[in-house]
C-alpha cells in the first residue's frame, strides 16, 4: 500500500492517477456513509460522487492535520446537508398525519396475527427501519448515523459537524426517542 501522504501530495499537484488511487481507497467508506444518510442507492451514489468532485476541487486546501477520512466525512456531511436544504424534502411525521389518513400500502404496519413468513417479516422490518430513519430531521439522522453505524465518538461528531458536544447528545437522544416511537411494535422481539 502506497504512502497516503505521498499520494495526497501528488494529487494536490494535479496528478489524476494519484487522485484515482485515493478515490478507490475511500469510495466504499464514502458510499456507505452516504447510503446511511440518504437511505437509497441512487441518492447515495450521487452524493458520494459529489463528495469526490468537491474533494478534487478542494484538495489543495487539505492540510494533512486531519486524517483524509475525517476530511471526506466532513465533506459528505456538508454535501448531505446542502442537498437536504436544496430539496427541502418534506419529512413525514406520525404526529402531523391527519386523523384517519391511511399510510401508503408499503408502510402499513405488520399484523402480528397474520404470522407471515420470516423473509416477509424481515422485509417489513427493513422498510420500517428505513421509514423511521427518513422521519428524523437531517441533523438528527446525521448524528445518529455517525454514532450508531459509523461508530464515531460523540466528541468527534461535534467537531465534524461544528456543534457542541451537548448539542450532539441532545440530537442523538431525540433521534433515538423518535426511532423508539416509530419502532415500538418490534421491541418485544429484542
Amino acid at each position: 500500500m502506497k504512502d497516503e501522504k505521498e499520494l495526497i501530495e501528488r494529487a494536490q499537484r494535479g496528478e489524476i492517477g494519484a487522485f484515482r488511487e485515493l478515490v478507490e481507497r475511500y469510495q466504499k467508506t464514502v458510499y456507505f456513509l452516504a447510503l446511511d444518510l440518504c437511505g437509497c442507492r441512487q441518492d447515495a451514489e450521487d452524493l458520494s460522487q459529489e463528495v469526490f468532485l468537491k474533494a478534487y476541487r478542494f484538495l489543495p486546501n487539505f492540510r494533512g492535520e486531519a486524517r483524509l477520512s475525517s476530511w471526506l466525512y466532513r465533506i459528505t456531511m456538508n454535501c448531505f446537508m446542502d442537498t437536504r436544504r436544496k430539496k427541502q424534502l418534506p419529512t413525514l411525521s406520525l404526529h402531523s398525519d391527519a386523523p384517519g389518513e391511511n399510510h401508503p400500502a408499503e408502510l402499513s404496519l405488520p399484523d402480528p396475527a397474520a404470522d407471515p413468513s420470516a423473509s416477509t417479516r424481515s422485509d417489513e422490518l427493513q422498510r420500517h427501519i428505513r421509514r423511521a430513519l427518513d422521519r428524523l430531521s437531517p441533523r438528527e439522522r446525521s448524528v445518529f448515523v455517525l454514532r450508531h453505524y459509523q461508530e464515531l465518538p460523540l466528541k468527534e461528531i461535534g467537531e465534524m459537524l461544528e456543534i457542541a458536544e451537548g448539542t450532539v447528545k441532545a440530537l442523538l437522544f431525540r433521534a433515538i426517542k423518535r426511532l423508539q416511537e416509530e419502532l415500538a411494535i418490534y421491541r418485544a422481539e429484542v
Partner: peptide, 23 residues
C-alpha cells in the same frame, strides 16, 4: 431495545460491477 432493532438494519451491498464502474 430500540438500538438493537436499528442493529438489524441491512444495507444493500453493490455488486463488483458497481465499484468497477465507479471511477
Amino acid at each position: 431495545q430500540t438500538l438493537r432493532i436499528m442493529d438489524r438494519r441491512e444495507q444493500p451491498r453493490p455488486e463488483s460491477d458497481f465499484w468497477n464502474a465507479y471511477w
